Amino acid sequence: TIDSSMPGGHATLTIDNLRVPADQMLGQAGEGFRYAQVRLSPARLSHCMRWLGCCIRAHEIATDYANRREAFGKPLIEHEGVGFMLAENMIDLKQAELMIDWCAGVLDTGSLGTVESSMGKVAVSEALMSIADRCVQVMGGTGVTDRTIVEQVFREVRAFRIYDGPTEVHKWSLAKKIKRDWKAGLA
């Protein structure tokens, strides 16, 4: 099935008993995992960029809502609870953007950027989930309706935390690197 509800949907395929003649094989036999590693960092980064754009739009919608909607005699934005949530969004959006720029810079050097893309994927996906959640919260009941894309972004950004490796797998991989680096420092 193709998930067409958001940009970058994924296909699920099942292939049984596939045999590829040697003269039609791309690359060398047994090298598929290594080849896949080359595409992982750019794929993680493209997910980060796509979802950053979605969350920027959700934040714009929530900001507009908070400036137009009034409660207790003043616009929602003037209530600290709402204003602070939007301020936190602004901070998280900038941090996500900077993390993406940093990782892209590493990839631009020709490096595989495996560690950097893992760090970026974790930081950006977690931040964007928080941003989407705050956008829904700011908008209250409207935030969970189909009157804007905010609900859809919130619902769909949750899966982003799983694409190209869930947060916990990236943290596990990073912890293994920390241990390797520590052992190398002892030698």
Rank of each mutant, 00 (worst) to 15 (best):
S4D: 13
S4L: 09
G8C: 11
H10W: 12
A11H: 08
I15D: 02
I15T: 04
D16T: 13
P21C: 06
A22T: 08
A22L: 11
L26M: 07
L26E: 05
Q28E: 12
Q28C: 03
E31K: 13
E31Y: 07
E31C: 07
R34H: 08
A36P: 00
V38Y: 06
L40H: 07
L40D: 10
S41V: 06
W51H: 10
G53L: 08
C55M: 04
A58R: 02
E60Y: 05
I61V: 15
Y65F: 15
Y65I: 02
N67Q: 15
N67W: 00
R68H: 14
R68Y: 07
E70I: 10
E70H: 15
F72Q: 10
F72D: 09
G73V: 03
G73R: 03
L76Q: 02
L76N: 01
E78H: 08
H79L: 04
H79F: 02
G83K: 01
M85P: 01
L86P: 00
L86N: 01
A87H: 01
A87I: 00
N89T: 00
M90Y: 02
M90R: 09
I91K: 01
D92N: 09
L93I: 03
K94C: 00
E97A: 11
L98H: 06
M99A: 15
D101L: 12
D101N: 10
D101A: 15
L107N: 05
L112T: 13
L112A: 12
T114L: 15
V115G: 06
S117W: 06
M119V: 13
V122S: 02
V122D: 01
A123R: 03
S125K: 03
S125Q: 06
A127C: 08
A127I: 01
S130P: 00
S130C: 09
I131F: 04
A132S: 14
D133I: 01
R134Q: 08
Q137K: 14
M139T: 03
G141D: 12
T142I: 11
G143H: 04
D146C: 07
T148L: 05
E151Y: 10
Q152D: 07
F154W: 12
R155M: 14
E156Y: 09
E156V: 06
R158H: 14
A159E: 09
A159Q: 09
F160S: 00
E168T: 09
V169A: 13
V169F: 07
V169I: 12
W172R: 12
S173E: 06
L174A: 05
L174G: 04
A175G: 08
K176L: 15
K177H: 11
R180E: 15
R180P: 00
A184K: 14
L186G: 11
